[in-house]
């Protein structure tokens, strides 16, 4: 049926805007969401600059630029609107950079930034359609393809300190005496350039939760999962397993909790699924750290949990008036 043409009745001097209800809306937009997320990364970035110097900034810049340029090219190829001005590509490029050691080879950083967009998002339909947190896809690709270029101790060999998780993995619990918890908290440790800045990441994460751009459920459940699982191992044998505080303050636990796990597209919706998702991811972190071959379990733990998202989304409450 062709809809009838509705003519203006008589007054066309005033042309009104029409839209479906509701006519009041919250002022949430993707642009604003991403601006707040980028703002939340600033404290960690400043701390990373303080710790690692200019290489930290150049790594972030390279990855961010590569991501944005790749996104533009791919959107053009797909003949879609080029909407990089919503900052999503930039944000995810920077998230990828935050996982890298400062001063990682530029070609790999560029590749990773591009892969974040290509393999992380575009092949699945673009922003918002990715089943797995996009920066982690690129991280895993690079980690498996160029292990040396991604290695934290190797890239940061000019620092007199060691990467805590690698020490734990390869040299055992006794070597952890060299680390002071306060130093770890203040970011005086080796690791992903942004991810290791625990204080800055926490400040940004709490800012996002307070401004309601990130709901509390996933970060809280994730941290609970990490703490409880680590505590269980620690209570079984404190001579063999590290204490939960150490686990919380090292690697990408905080970064994962506040920035990677709550990634909008790849995390579940609904309160119960989000809590389960956080708990599973948090538990996996410690299991990978204890039994896996990778020192830091966070990226793989979150990717595994991402794969469970469609399943977790099936856990839903009884609908209103439903049986």
């Amino acid at each position: 049926m062709t809809p009838p043409v509705i003519k203006a009745m008589s007054d066309i001097a005033v042309r009104l805007t029409v839209s479906p209800a509701p006519h009041w809306r919250s002022k949430r937009t993707v642009e604003k969401m991403m601006q707040y997320h980028l703002l939340a990364l600033v404290p960690a970035l400043l701390m990373a600059f303080n710790m690692f110097g200019l290489p930290a900034l150049s790594t972030v810049g390279t990855a961010g630029a590569a991501a944005v340029i790749t996104e533009v090219l791919l959107l053009k190829l797909q003949e879609r609107d080029v909407n990089v001005d919503n900052y999503t590509a930039l944000y995810e490029g920077i998230l990828f950079a935050f996982l890298l050691p400062a001063g990682a080879p530029w070609w790999m950083v560029g590749c990773g930034g591009a892969l974040t967009i290509v393999l992380g998002r575009t092949v699945f339909g673009g922003f918002g359609s990715n089943p797995i947190c996009a920066p982690l896809v690129a991280w895993a690709f690079c980690r498996l393809s160029w292990p040396a270029a991604m290695d934290i101790d190797l890239n940061l060999a000019h620092f007199a300190i060691n990467a805590p998780l690698d020490q734990l993995k390869y040299f055992g619990l006794d070597t952890l005496e060299q680390f002071d918890n306060m130093d770890l908290f203040l970011g005086k440790q080796l690791g992903g350039l942004g991810a290791s800045q625990i204080l800055g990441i926490m400040a940004g994460g709490i800012f996002l939760v307070a401004t309601k751009w990130v709901r509390i459920f996933i970060p809280a459940a994730f941290l609970v999962g990490v703490t409880v699982t680590a505590s269980i191992f620690w209570m079984i044998d404190p001579e063999v397993y590290a204490n939960p505080i150490f686990h919380l303050l090292t690697g990408s636990v905080m970064f994962g909790a506040f920035f990677l796990a709550p990634d909008v597209a790849s995390s579940p919706v609904g309160i119960i699924p989000q809590v389960l998702f956080g708990l599973i991811a948090g538990t996996m972190v410690i299991i990978i750290r204890v039994y896996g071959i990778y020192p830091d379990g966070v990226p793989f733990a979150i990717m595994v949990a991402n794969l469970l998202t469609p399943l977790l989304d099936r856990v839903r409450p009884k609908p209103f008036g439903g049986k």
Partner: peptide, 30 residues
Amino acid sequence: VIPEGTFPSIEDATCINCGECVLSCPARIQ
């Protein structure tokens, strides 16, 4: 009467799965 520009306009965009609608739904549906 809602003046022009008061709210961001509706868009033909794809869902990004953020879950805000699910979390605010009083009928507990998706």
